[in-house]
Nucleic acid binder design. Structure first.
Length: 838
RNA sequence: GGGAGUAUGGCGGAACUGGUAGACGCGCCGGAUUCAAAAUCCGGUCACUUUGGUGGUGUGGGUUCGAUUCCCUCUACUCCUACCA
């Protein structure tokens, strides 16, 4: 009996069996070690793309492997279901964003099911469901009451034609995406979360995250942007008020020759009210790029230098001073800051060097066009002279504090998280504004604040503010009239805590702290590098905030993090400079043409994207070749953290391989038992099995794949030459099906079933750990002056002396030693013997 | 400007703590099978070569008995970030 492998039937069959037996349903089990593996959940945009296929395949390898290693594995899936595309689609289709979203979820779920992922679908969540978002409304209220959520003015993008607020991605080159109108900045009062309160903890705890890529930690650390410096008060010369600046270079205070304020600075705002030319300058600044032109406005005010008697510094308003960082005010020390120097040169301000390079004479040292920003020796600075930069910083800060003209100060770049969005398809912010001006949290019993059911979604429905009747409400306590907050949460809000919800996806509370204790932290989180900062930082913040609100005891949500590479593909363009889809390419006699018969040229290999038309639809691939083939291709060749180039030949060869695997079943049927001395073959297979495990542990799946190829090659060769006993052929095939299980689970089950014909599943087998016999013989390289000349086989316990004797008998070596004197002999057991000759 | 990273055959990539460079896959070449093709199977595939060897891991140097691996120099590319005082 010989049968061809039918992936369509086989894959469906096992998917059904796994589902029927509830294989992947997870229960808390305190007797077992837990393992939580999670891939970043998808936005339900329509259908899955290759990036998803790669992401979920990687996660599935880990999940199945850990399960077979005996862990109690949690591997859930859900939908990041709020977001702008649903609104856009609803506009064109004139229906509620909800129905569009749920339709997509349905489609994408069926695709994920086809991939044969070991997911616990009982825990599936959709963040747009009130049973999900009601809990985050409660979190927000807790944060509000604890002072972690507050309101302040912030700018939004305002489209003056559509009279709506636009998201950043709806603004293209400064114009509204639909109206084409020039977008204005408008100030609105908006909600913020106090992530800045956790700046230091978020920075420090990066050290705990041993399982994170260094790259991501560096990015987060830069984003938090801690810097140590000082605040210094400069007294205005004509009155008793002062201007406070922040600096990280207090050591250069003696080189200060001016002060500069941002246009948003309080003092500037006050001055501008009665100074028309300053006002004009402020308007001009809005159209200036400070990187190209540094512009200033002389206020004619002066401040006293805090350390030099009778020295006065002019105060400027300058376009290059940031309002959000520090205090929006700086002192300029042109000699040691390039920006200050450019500015000083523009306005003929003094340049006084106060740090000189070590090996240059003070008299010869001049700063002209390039500021000196390195470490050196302090000069021209009274009591700081002769110190280096670090020492001078310490000393000047002590002095500043002693004189009470400033203080040591740590500053962060990290800003508070603005969470208000003027959009419909998001979680409503549970706040009411009472007519007497009170801002109140919605009472727990009133939660969730649900989105309205809009029948015909239109432009005007795109904010809750415009939906009649929705915002009017009554304060339950006083009976006074009130209005609901009409903004919704940033969608990062939902993704900041979904990994907790999976512990108890159907509970009426957000989760059971006991289950959080058991399951969290996530042992292995897998996703794209694009979330290195925002999503991961917000999630870390959320964990710490919920901890402080008493929900659980946990400092960090993700113990291990893996960032996968992108899936790329060659791009094609025709003579009209239009992108061409790969499936529309026809190849004749080495030339490429598109459907219209136009000549096509290949371009760069780029990330698959609709705009460049270089996408391959996973649907087509799974239909044609099956899920196992797609999975195998995703895991072959490229290391998971690097980009993976999609090729037709690659997928075809994966397909061949899957069929070849099943062919062993046919070959076993009717295999004649012959040789029995196959111990070497069995040993080498055992070695390979262990190597496959090692490579999975270290996330080097491409190497596991290579080892499996070796396994298959050895097996094929041995059976075609009848070197393997029937018993060991069966043994090999059993082992093969088991180690294939994490990678290509369907064909693995099929082989297993063919061998066993009983009611066991391959996924339920234990992962093998083979005991490999110590080898009796070593192969060692014989080198002369470090160059390998010969490879010899020796007994394991041979001595150096014996090795030397052996190789001196070797004719090849002998020849190389003619007229040479051996001056040194280096022997590394089991590896090399090196003769150093003259 | 600042930060992180990468560089190995025609291509994707292997090479444990310094010890046989190019595993494995793709592609290519040759052969078998076939009326023919596809599929499949077998063999070959770093370069040069006087077939003894010699050279070779982006460049140039260093350490070492020995360097893809460690150190320094330069070059190219990728990613992040950017007037953060």
């Amino acid at each position: 009996m010989s049968s061809r492998y039918n992936h369509k039937l086989v894959e469906k069959k096992w998917q059904k069996v796994w589902a029927k037996e509830n294989v992947f349903q997870t229960k808390k089990n305190l007797n077992k070690k837990k393992y939580y593996v999670l891939e970043m959940f998808p936005y339900p945009s329509g259908k899955i793309h290759m990036g998803h296929v790669r992401n979920y395949t990687l996660g599935d390898v880990v999940a199945r492997y850990k399960r077979m290693k005996g862990y109690n594995v949690l591997h859930p899936m859900g939908w990041d279901a709020f977001g702008l595309p649903a609104e856009n689609a609803a506009l064109t289709e004139k229906k509620h964003p909800e129905s569009w979203t749920y339709q997509n979820i349905k489609t994408m779920k069926s695709q994920l099911l086809q991939m044969g992922l070991s997911l616990d679908w009982e825990r599936e969540i959709a963040t747009c469901h009130p049973d999900y978002y009601k809990h985050e409304q409660k979190f927000f209220i807790d944060m509000f009451k604890a002072g972690l959520a507050y309101k302040k003015e912030a700018e939004v993008n305002w489209d003056p034609i559509d009279k709506t607020v636009l998201a950043n991605e709806q603004v293209i080159d400064g114009k509204g995406w639909r109206s084409g109108a020039t977008i204005e900045k408008k100030k609105l009062s908006q909600w913020f979360l106090k992530i800045s309160k956790y700046s230091d903890e978020l920075l420090k705890d990066l050290d705990i995250l041993k399982g994170w890529p260094n790259k991501v930690k560096v990015m987060q650390s830069n984003w938090i942007g801690k810097s140590i410096g000082a605040e210094i008060d400069f007294k205005l010369s004509n009155n008793n008020k002062s201007i406070t600046v922040f600096t990280t270079r207090p050591d250069t205070i003696f080189g200060a020759t001016f002060l500069a304020l941002s246009i948003e600075h309080e003092l500037v705002q006050a001055l501008s009210k009665k100074n028309e030319s300053l006002n004009t300058f402020i308007q001009e600044c809005k159209n200036l790029n400070p990187e190209k032109t540094k512009k200033g406005f002389d206020t004619n005010l002066f401040v006293d230098h805090p350390f030099i008697d009778n020295k006065k510094l002019p105060v400027f308003v300058a376009n290059f001073v940031l309002k959000e960082y520090g205090l929006g005010a700086i002192f300029g020390c042109p000699a040691h800051d390039q920006r200050d120097l450019d500015f000083a040169n523009e306005y003929n301000l003094d340049v006084i060097p106060v740090v000189k390079p070590l090996n240059i004479n003070e008299k010869k040292f001049k700063v002209n066009k390039v500021a000196f920003t390195d470490d050196g020796v302090i000069i021209n600075s009274q009591f700081l002279n002769d110190l280096n930069v670090d020492k001078a910083k310490d000393k000047i800060i002590i002095e500043i504090e002693k004189r009470e003209i400033g203080r040591k100060k740590i500053n962060y770049k990290l800003r508070d998280w603005g969470i208000s969005r003027q959009r419909f398809w998001g979680c409503p912010i549970p706040i009411i504004y009472r007519e007497d001006g009170e801002v109140l949290a919605v009472e727990d019993a009133e939660l969730p604040v649900k989105l309205p059911d809009v029948k015909n979604f239109s432009e005007s429905s795109s904010t809750l503010n415009n939906i009649s009747g929705w915002k009017e409400t009554i304060c339950p306590e006083t009976g006074m009239k009130a209005q609901r907050e009409t903004d919704t949460f940033d969608t990062f809000f939902e993704s900041s805590w979904y990994y907790f919800r999976y512990c108890n996806a159907r509970l009426d509370k957000p989760f059971d702290p006991k289950d959080i204790d058991y399951w969290l932290p996530v042992d292995q989180y897998i996703g794209g590098i694009e979330h290195a900062i925002l999503h991961l930082l917000y999630s870390r913040f959320f964990t710490k905030a919920l901890r402080d609100l008493g929900y659980f005891k946990l400092d960090e949500p993700f113990k291990g993090l893996f960032t996968q590479g992108m899936v790329t593909h060659l791009t094609y363009k025709n003579k009209n400079n239009e992108w061409v889809e790969p499936k529309d390419i026809q190849k004749t006699n080495g030339t490429l043409k598109d459907k219209k018969g136009l000549l096509v040229q290949t371009g760069k290999v780029e990330k698959m994207s609709k705009s460049k038309k270089n996408v391959v639809d996973p649907n087509d691939i799974i239909e044609t070749y099956g899920a196992d083939t797609a999975r195998w291709f995703m895991l072959s060749d490229s290391p998971p953290e690097r980009d993976l180039q999609w090729t037709d030949t690659g997928i075809a060869s994966s397909y061949k391989f899957i069929n070849k695997l099943y062919d062993f079943v046919n070959k076993l049927d009717g295999y004649e038992d012959s040789r029995k001395d196959d111990i070497d073959i069995v040993e080498s297979i055992k070695k390979i099995i262990n190597q496959v495990s090692e490579n999975i542990e270290t996330f080097q799946f491409n190497k596991s794949v290579a080892k499996i190829y070796e396994f298959v090659n050895i097996l094929n060769e041995s059976i075609s030459m009848q070197k393997l006993s029937r018993k060991n052929f069966e043994w090999s095939l059993e082992k093969l099906s088991i180690i294939l299980q994490p990678f290509v689970p369907h064909v693995s089950e099929e082989i297993w079933w063919s061998l066993k014909k009983e009611e066991t599943l391959c996924i339920n087998q234990d992962w093998p750990k083979e005991v490999v016999k110590k080898e009796i013989k070593f192969k060692i390289a014989v080198q002369i002056n470090g160059k390998t000349k010969e490879i010899i086989e020796v007994d394991q316990n041979i001595s150096k002396k014996e090795v030397l004797e052996t190789i001196k008998m070797n004719s090849k070596i002998k020849k190389n030693l003619i007229d040479k004197e051996v001056v040194r002999e280096i022997y590394v057991e089991g590896k090399i013997i090196n003769l150093v000759v003259k």
